[in-house]
Amino acid sequence: MELWIDCLIVLLILTNLKLISSSRLSACIRVVAIQGVLLGLVPLLVGSGDLTFRVILLSIVTMVVKGIVFPWLLLKALRSANVRREMEPFVGYTTSLLVGVGLLALAIWMGRQLPLPAPSKSPLVVPLALFTIMIGLFAIVSRRKALTQVLGYLVMENGIYAFGLAFAHQEPLLVELGTLLDVFMAVFIMGITIFQINREFDHIDTDRLSLLKD
């Protein structure tokens, strides 16, 4: 059982690193899709509670939404914006990889600060969640394309979700689904906005979206 958990966590970490190092947007979307699917497995393997119907339903819904619906939506937005790759981002790909490793170290240090929640099976879950959140934030801050920012937001959401699924096992189902619905709505509206931005500016570089300032 330990093997499966560790390899799942390592896979998740790898997807994060892959995200910040790849420049082609379609590749990034696929990475996030994989991460969504992996995330669906978290409650089954790492989850503290026993395998109730609730946990299984939740993981299936997560896998479907994060693995299929979001990528489909974002690919549609990508095609409409006909953008191929992230042009010159603020932080180069190699340096962002180094930053990724640094963030991993920071996440592990912070993970150790907080005492381990009792039921968790492996000590690496909290650092993993924190690491994914930090990678999400880093992606938003360091990339130009609006689409990458949405991906960053999604990755950050995945990190929080991983933490939620692993520990808050008593969270009522309705709230989990509510959260999922909200994230879905958020991504849906962001997709529409990207479509509008592309129609209005025929580019989706958010750094050029900086007219409103003091």
């Binding site: 938003i140 958020a186 509206i189 209005e200 007219l211």
Partner: peptide
């Protein structure tokens, strides 16, 4: 529906969601 309010909306969604 013009570019200034579009930019305001984008910032609003991104920052608040994060």
């Amino acid at each position: 529906r013009h570019y200034r309010s579009l930019e305001a909306t984008w910032k609003y969604i991104m920052i608040c969601s994060v």
